[in-house]
Design a binder for these strands. Structure first.
Length: 426
RNA sequence: GGAGGAUUGGCCGAGUGGCUUAAGGCGCACGCUUGGAAAGCGUGUAUGCGUGAGAAACGUAUCGAGGGUUCGAAUCCCUCAUCCUCCGCCA
């Protein structure tokens, strides 16, 4: 979340950022509410501290009086204290109310878009940042979309997924399962070669972790929730991995902290329909390798582009045509300040599929989860957090089989062959 | 799931209602000492919030978390979490 001090100091800048996200002036008024609540909070805190200081002082006096045998004087002071205590208690309750209200207001304010982000009202305003379309293949005349290929080569069975669980839970089998596992290993190996430490995190997280990354409360409906134990199935490895450092104060020397992890991801995707959800285009469970960095604020901009280069390298090795979009204000996710989406062209359905999202959250997540570092002057500062998919598997799987299909079968990209153990799926 | 024990600062560890401003040690930082180092000696060493322009300083809260009792709680009571030991179940 944003810092109140930031809202105070740069209110106009913050408001301009919200306008980029197509926020109306009515909604932007929440900034004034935040400042007013913070004023209240400070005033109440000051008088409460005064009352408590009096209680502490007089209590110490009472102790002395009892010790010196002046019980009567002590008892008189007891009455005095109990009055002050009532006041202090009232102030404490008031303070709690204000703080809760303030936090609630702050939770509704998204991150401020980076300077590079353009104003927009929908995804149509996203800018194309880079493009590699020379890899778009000329498919043979019988070319099929991936949902037909999956069936033809018996790689993924949706009907069985429905039988076992429900719609959107694909079952991979045979060479399909092997290809999936090959991709996971390939991505993890590439990430560790680039200096990321491999993590296998828990797949269920508690509420505090969900709040830390900004998944809660704003994406409450997107996550599967196990009510009995009050745990959430992760929508991405970003949640458990970034939360490894929740509440920590790290040393400047630790930067950059580079972590990667493979996990299944679970998303309810309520409200999706039509061709968006056809085949593997949008499913409730998919595999993803995530890369996360925790970085010094001055270096996070460069780090974002380093992560983008990593993802480009993966797609090039898989021989998949892609384009990179810089998201406009309206399409930017809640906690992000700057996001580049990678889309791969699925040649048979002739559709761009989002396969990666690389974001700089700056201090938004770290403020929520109190992830700090000591700067050169020994002052605590908020670190910057970044993450990206490298890569999201279901759609990569779909793109590979669509783009690399031939009339003889699906040709495995060279970079993957040592992982699959076969060159072609016939 | 059941029974018992535990949780104190970066780490170890003392502390059963006021003399705790949490002893002592380790680690770390700085200084003294030294030709240089080690040892030794000294000083300092948490986080949030508030009052200060800010540093200093002061106030306040925090001894696993949250409540409560009391004029006063690390210490007494309640709830919860986690860890350890044993029993049960189990890949």
């Amino acid at each position: 979340m944003l810092l109140v001090s930031q809202i105070r100091a740069e209110k106009e800048k913050v408001a301009a950022g919200l306008r980029k996200r197509a926020w109306s002036d009515d909604r932007i008024a929440v900034l004034d509410k935040v400042i007013a609540l913070d004023d209240d909070r400070k005033a109440v805190k000051t008088s409460m501290d005064e009352s408590l200081a009096n209680v502490n002082r007089i209590s110490a006096e009472i102790g002395q009086l009892f010790k010196t045998g002046k019980a009567q004087e002590a008892n008189a002071k007891k009455v005095e204290v109990s009055v002050i205590k009532t006041t202090a208690k009232d102030l404490e309750n008031r303070l709690k109310e204000i703080e809760a209200e303030l936090l609630e207001a702050l939770y509704t304010i998204p991150n401020i878009p980076d300077e590079k982000v353009v104003h927009g009202t929908s995804e149509l305003d996203n800018e194309v940042y880079q493009k590699w379309d020379s890899a778009i293949p000329a498919l043979h005349s019988d070319a099929k979309p991936h949902w037909d290929l999956m069936e033809q080569y018996n790689m993924v069975d949706f009907k069985l997924g429905v039988k076992i669980t429900g719609a959107g839970f694909p079952l991979y089998r045979g060479k399909g399962a092997k290809l999936q596992r090959a991709l996971i290993n390939f991505f993890i190996d590439e990430a560790t070669a680039a200096g990321y430490e491999e993590i296998i995190p828990p797949l269920l997280v508690n509420e505090a972790s969900g709040i830390g990354t900004g998944s809660l409360p704003d994406k409450e409906g997107q996550m599967y929730h196990c009510e009995k134990d009050d745990l959430y199935l992760i929508p991405t490895a970003e949640v458990p991995i970034t939360n490894m450092y929740r509440g920590d104060i790290v040393s400047v020397d630790d930067f950059p902290i580079k972590l990667t992890g493979y996990t299944p991801c679970f998303r309810r995707e309520a409200g999706s329909y039509g061709s968006d959800v056809k085949g593997l285009n949008r499913v409730h469970q998919f595999d993803k390798i995530e890369i996360v960095q925790i970085q010094h604020p001055e270096k996070s901009v460069d780090t974002l582009y380093e992560m983008i280069e990593h993802v480009k390298m993966l797609l090039t090795k898989l021989e998949l045509p892609y384009r990179i979009l810089r998201l406009c204000g309206a399409d930017l996710t809640f906690a992000s300040s700057l996001t580049y989406d990678f889309e791969v062209f699925a040649a048979a359905q002739e559709k761009w599929l989002e396969v990666s999202s690389v974001s700089n959250f700056k201090s938004y997540q770290s403020n929520r989860m109190k992830l700090r570092y000591k700067d050169e002057n020994g002052k605590t500062q908020f670190a910057h957090t970044l993450n990206g998919s490298a890569l999201a598997l279901a759609r990569i799987f779909a793109s590979i089989i669509e783009n690399h299909q031939t009339d003889k079968g699906i040709v495995i990209p060279k970079a993957l062959r040592s992982y699959t153990g076969f060159d072609i799926i016939e």
